[in-house]
Design a protein around this nucleic acid. Sequence first.
DNA 1: GAGTATATGGTACGACTGTTTCACTAACGA
DNA 2: TCGTTAGTGAAACAGTCGTACCATATACTC
Lengths: 186, 186
Amino acid sequence: MGRPADPARRERTLARATDYVLAHGLAGLSLRPLAAALDTSPRMLLYDFGSKQELVAAVLAEARRRGAVRLAERLPVATGSVQERLRGIWAWISADERAPFVRLFFEVHADGLVHPENYPDQGEAITDWFGTLGATFRDVSTGPDDTVTPTLVMAVVRGLLFDLTATGDRHRTDRALDRFAELLKQ
Amino acid sequence: MGRPADPARRERTLARATDYVLAHGLAGLSLRPLAAALDTSPRMLLYDFGSKQELVAAVLAEARRRGAVRLAERLPVATGSVQERLRGIWAWISADERAPFVRLFFEVHADGLVHPENYPDQGEAITDWFGTLGATFRDVSTGPDDTVTPTLVMAVVRGLLFDLTATGDRHRTDRALDRFAELLKQ
DNA sequence: GAGTATATGGTACGACTGTTTCACTAACGA
DNA sequence: TCGTTAGTGAAACAGTCGTACCATATACTC
């Protein structure tokens, strides 16, 4: 008995909070401005999530969930040459629409280097793409459980993303990826 | 006339502040703990640097200066095969002693993505290694002002650094670099 | 209606932040 | 000794932070 709980409200808040964090970043996140932007109050944020730390954890989980969904929609296009697949992945991840995700990705990584205790599963977040990526580049792998090829491919992608986000030089980074694709093809 | 200024004090403070930032990171930097660790006071930090923002700028400049010196000491070893040179660079940059620099590097990049206005020269910080790196890998470059090869090499190094710092998996990242060296050799 | 559990507003607490102000001392030239 | 400039400690200011407390409103069962 009593007033029935409304879990949808928490979900709605979580979705909007994730939008907000993707737009504004994690570093300066503060409950009061966040609440104001979400038409709610710090009081309600703590009521729904317990603490700021738990709210952030929920937001990061939601962001990762969204990214995984988007990736799953995109990646199965494992047809074509190695070059085409690589270019497809790069075009997708480096597109402007993905910029907020990429930004948050780098932000979480950097914060995790200073406070590893807050991100117990950061290692997984890096390596869990290997399953899908390994499948995508099976023909250039050295074996069925080759982890080196996905590692290298992801390193190139992340490194070029790093470069692109810092310099904005799309032409140079695009060409560097093409060059890597050529090398990979042999 | 009057008491003579003592610029050495500011230099000493800057050096120790840089040590502190390299050890503790930029994100949570606060004047009072910093001053306490440096046996000085927030009052003096502001007296010497004007504001926290200028202090941070000075610290970052100092850190970059140190990194450049260390790199200049190391890089001229441009002898040997492409593989050996690449391995040498990777061994140097991924060594544990460089970890604080690498951490700060990622931290500044991430913060720069959220607040680009604070880092007007971030693009340069990424590309200014190309001069030296381009010279080092001249024999695998496509031309005298080939920017693509240095871009790719740095992307691999940064991407693998990203992986290594997040997962701590040295074996896998080392092998990925070896694989890249093989590809580069053709 | 009473009883009860959820939802919410308002407010204040204690701890921090960068910075400022005021007073004072230290070290020099004349 | 006096004037002048550099250096420095202590305290306060105005603000923000996450969070806790207290009241009250809302929506349900009985």
